[in-house]
Design a protein around this nucleic acid. Structure first.
Lengths: 233, 233
DNA sequence: GCATGCTATTTTGTATACAATTTTGAGTGT
DNA sequence: ACACTCAAAATTGTATACAAAATAGCATGC
């Protein structure tokens, strides 16, 4: 298998599995067995088990005793919960970031923004490039949380973002609404760079609320769509 | 070993270890080895390892590869972070609870409050009874989070409370400040029962901020105290 | 044809054996 | 007395073997 670090196998397996889940390579609802993963990654079941334990704690997989693990499937309600919390945490983190950001931090944020713009401006961009733009856009929030200086806050926000990232990707990827996110991100970064904590926080909260409405609307539509076919069949 | 449930050993070990850490039976900073715990609980190292993984994810123990695990020691800064987040989450949860609480929920809260009062009113109460009062007082926040209906929020708040509980116990146990908490708890429950979300949320935030100041002040004093002796020796 | 019960397979849970690494301590040399 | 080296002990990391439980499939009986 491809080991990035020289650390423990457990960590490698964890990272590999997490990446596969977050990017949707292993779709939600999939059943994952220890043996399969162990065979695929050429390791024994032991490190795989430990990775599963951590993933379960992260909420990325759900496991019941002696029934194996399933990649967690979010329903609409779980999204409501997640975005509710994200609004609180992201808002607070952005406020903090506006007061603590150094010049280096600000440069980093601006660079990420520029990268988003660059990827968005490519004429006939491929799916891969669209993904990249989304990834940088989501990472922006992670970096803001990091800049906030509250390590625990950063960790919690990353956890939530990990859980939602796959859905944001697959659901929002084809929407023009993402253009709006880009503008909002720019405003947020601007406020942080200006040191305007109140404004930055408010913008962040509005932004999360907007994402929330987009995702919920799409999921609702999808759900209606599916139940329509269920009735028709 | 004493197994509560008929579930997996991993879960039993996890619960047992968590209880020992949260109650301070294993003090922060202690080095814990897999073999010791395995021997003490009469199980093999495997379930112990998995329990450690989960505890590490909870932030209750810290482990570095091939160096074993140590019960996490909070410094003042980590407390600041934890209480910062708790103010947000607890405030929000209390707001939600005020709008969603059923009559049964309200009765439950009132019962917990009454239990606190009862334990506080005992003339020459023992340490055990003081502990019990503290435990019910902290549980009150967990129940409020549960009533909020946001499962994720409840889980996150429980995680934070678990991490802080030991310190609250050992530090605040002998303080009269706890009397204040009892009054504040009563006010919060009152607001929830009245369905006044704004007031309940505001009271909760003030309450958390108060706890924060108490804990920080004590830790600061302790730290000064220790560095005084360090210089003197 | 359908339901029910049993067995066979698959999969997880636990224990143990072995490997690798870190730490500790003794011993020696300066 | 101090520092350095090397070896031995302790501890984690990984693999594998075995046990227990759940699922699935098949056969049998109605």
């Amino acid at each position: 298998m491809a080991r990035k670090t020289k650390d423990t196998l457990r960590d490698s397996v964890y990272s590999a599995l997490k990446a596969m889940i977050v990017t949707g390579q292993i779709p939600p609802g999939s059943r994952v067995t220890e043996s399969d993963i162990a065979a695929k990654l050429n390791v024994s079941r032991t490190p795989v088990r430990e990775a599963f334990n951590r993933l379960e704690r992260d909420g990325l997989v759900t496991g019941r005793p002696r029934q194996g693990y399933v990649v967690t499937e979010f329903d609409i309600n779980m999204f409501r919960e997640a975005f509710d919390i994200r609004e609180l945490l992201d808002g607070h983190a952005t406020e903090l970031a506006a007061t603590t950001a150094t010049e280096k931090d600000k440069a980093r944020l601006r660079a990420m923004l520029a990268e988003c713009e660059r990827l968005a401006a490519i004429p006939d961009r491929t799916t891969k490039e669209k993904f990249q733009e989304l990834e940088v856009g989501i990472d922006l929030h992670r970096v803001i949380a990091e800049i906030s200086g509250n390590v625990m806050l950063h960790g919690m926000l990353c956890g939530i973002l990990d859980k939602c990232q796959h859905y944001v990707w697959t659901e929002l990827l084809w929407l023009d609404e993402w253009k709006m996110a880009r503008d909002e991100h720019a405003e947020i970064v601007e406020a942080i760079c200006a040191g305007d904590a109140a404004r930055a926080g408010a913008l962040a909260r509005v932004h999360v609320r907007g994402s929330r409405e987009n995702v919920l609307r799409l999921l609702q539509a999808k759900s209606d769509y599916q139940s329509f076919f269920a009735k028709a069949s």
